[in-house]
């Protein structure tokens, strides 16, 4: 069963085509990779899924809901089903690690007691429990990345989007991050990872979509 469908989707920025006629689908519980060089449209494709951008052409469906038909008030509800690992992290500098992760739950109106349990469980999963009181600027790149992942998964999303999740990480840390994604996927979460790091999808057996200059130029098994 397809959870995400792109039907002839196009997106332009200032008369420049960012995505051209993209048609693809991602099954429920699947883990896929989107690859391609910088500027190929990977980030734009993910942004269309979490509605940070709207397509100029074509249609995107999540489940059987066409995104274009969503009312303004329904957008936050849809975003709550999606966890996002942003390329630029988007961590809140004035909040510590615990608060940065907890915000994803507080937005959903979850009780303080449950917030505590879930945040510490997630921090344990990414091996950062000891950093709960630290502020983002005091963390290494890899630690910040794991905080972002924790925030993305803490509310048990249906879909997890990761934009260059291993961008500036050393191979060992990148491997650790991938292990977390596989674990999340094994729990039934659909995972979309945009990356230009081939090592991430090599020999995974997962579908890999390749973008180039906004067009989908290939689909292979990793």
């Amino acid at each position: 069963m397809d959870l995400i469908q792109f039907q002839a989707v196009g997106k332009d920025y200032d008369n420049q085509t960012a995505l051209r006629d993209i048609t693809l689908s991602v099954g429920k519980g699947e883990m896929i990779f989107i690859t391609g060089p910088s500027g190929s449209g990977k980030t734009t494709l993910l942004k269309l899924v979490y509605l940070a951008e709207k397509p100029d052409r074509g249609a995107i469906l999540i489940g059987d809901v066409e995104m274009e038909t969503l009312r303004e008030a329904q957008i936050p509800l849809l975003r709550r089903t999606i966890g996002v690992v942003f390329q630029d992290f988007r961590l809140l500098d004035n909040k510590n690690v615990f608060e940065n992760i907890a915000i994803a739950l507080r937005i959903r109106g979850i009780s303080e007691k449950e917030v505590k349990t879930k945040v510490f469980d997630t921090l344990k999963m990414v091996n950062l429990r000891h950093k709960a009181d630290a502020y983002p600027r005091a963390l290494s790149g890899g630690e910040q990345q794991r905080v972002v992942i924790s925030r993305a998964i803490v509310a048990d999303p249906t879909v997890l989007l990761a934009d260059e999740p291993t961008g500036n990480l050393d191979p060992g840390t990148a491997e650790g991050v991938m292990r977390i994604f596989k674990e999340i996927n094994a729990r039934g979460t659909t995972v979309l990872i945009a990356t230009h790091n081939r090592e991430l999808y090599r020999n995974t057996g997962r579908r890999v979509f390749t973008l180039d200059s906004g067009s989908l130029v290939g689909e292979v098994r990793g």
Binding site: Y50, A52, A73, P76, L77, L78, R79, R80, I82, V84, F86, R90, L92, I103, A104, I107, R108, R151
Partner: peptide, 16 residues
């Protein structure tokens, strides 16, 4: 503004 943008992307409603 950046904080609010992050809240929005995480699913915050206008009321929040």
């Amino acid at each position: 503004k950046d904080e609010i943008e992050t809240f929005k992307l995480l699913g915050a409603t206008r009321a929040f």
